[in-house]
């Protein structure tokens, strides 16, 4: 038996982020794998391009249009003209250019959908992590979920409109205020599932701080779900907005959205189908492409599909 200094065999080391990474080091990079996996799906890449082109085009379309949205004037001579050289998307019932209305509204709708999606993601993930990780929060948050989830959306949105008012900010906030629930619930379920896995237990025993466990060990599992939720949230927001506009609880006259155009077109589309088809096609393009891209990214982001 050789005499070995106990201190040389075991000694307490300060936690060091660099050193922690070094264990099991490979050239694996999470985001690179996501990217590779995503690129493999040609259809999804195509859809992503369509989506981005569409978003960019809403700006170009307004710039190249022959009429400015803010300067539209009604004209009895030009009502209900179909698409033509002068009016690329035709004219509405007041004889105003429809092209700039559709694209202006598309911009508003996309903006609303993105704001709501991001808001939902931030609030939802934050609360979801807490919900899953902090045991005593489970009871009250579950109850809150049940309560909010079972109040009919229409009642909720009507009361908001009556008590607070209408507008872009209010609507976005109100939608986030109910939309985060689903996201938080999904996140919470995953956090619950993974937080007591052995490697996390080991990680914690080794003194890794909680935030690091959450961000490095659990978060990659969440990304897939978060993206899936976002992919569903954008069509969901646009659908809810159009339903609310239909009920008169929409954004208000000052901010025309695709929902409002669809609602107005309801009265005319049997005679003048282009009034419905044009905004509907754009809405559908936005929602379908985002839905498919979101699904593809979500698959790509699932670490189980990596390597």
């Amino acid at each position: 038996m050789s005499k070995v200094n106990q201190d040389e065999l075991f000694r307490v080391v300060e936690y060091s982020a660099d050193a922690a990474e070094r264990i099991g080091y490979s050239n694996y990079s999470y985001w690179r794998s996501v990217w590779h996996n995503f690129l493999k799906k040609k259809s999804a890449v195509f859809m992503a391009i369509v989506f981005i082109v569409l978003v960019v085009f809403t700006f170009i379309a307004l710039a190249i249009g022959k009429y400015q949205y803010t300067e539209l004037v009604s004209n009895r001579e030009t009502t209900f003209l179909g698409p033509c050289a002068e009016y690329w998307f035709g004219t509405d019932n007041l004889g105003r250019d429809y092209w700039c209305q559709v694209w202006y509204a598309a911009q508003v709708s996309i903006k609303l959908a993105l704001v709501v999606a991001v808001g939902e993601a931030i609030v939802g993930v934050a609360i979801g992590c807490l919900w899953g990780y902090v045991r005593w929060l489970d009871r009250p948050l579950t109850e809150l979920y049940n309560v909010i989830n079972n109040i009919p959306t229409v009642i909720y949105m009507t009361l908001v409109a009556l008590i607070v008012g209408q507008g872009f900010g209010i609507m976005a906030t109100a939608m986030i205020a109910i939309g985060w629930l689903v996201m938080a619930r999904n996140v919470r379920n995953l956090v619950l599932m993974y937080r007591d896995r052995e490697y996390n237990l080991a990680s914690r025993c080794l003194g890794t701080p909680v935030w690091r466990v959450l961000v490095k060990n659990i978060f990659p599992y969440l990304i897939s779900v978060i993206i899936l939720r976002l992919a569903l949230s954008i069509p969901g927001t646009i659908a809810l907005e159009s339903t609310l506009s239909y009920l008169g609880l929409g954004l208000g006259a000052a901010t025309p959205s695709l929902g409002l155009l669809l609602r107005n077109a309801r009265n005319f589309f049997l005679d003048y189908p282009y009034l419905l088809i044009e905004p509907a096609v754009i809405v559908s393009l936005i929602t379908v492409t985002f839905y498919l891209v979101g699904n593809a990214v979500s698959d790509a982001a699932d670490p189980r599909n990596h390597v």
């Binding site: 009604s74 008169g248 929409g250 006259a253 609602r263 107005n264 009265n267």
Partner: peptide
Amino acid sequence: YIKAGGGSALDGATVLKE
């Protein structure tokens, strides 16, 4: 003031404004 929800109320108001 017009009732929210667009449609002909909004069209009427737009024309009136002009």
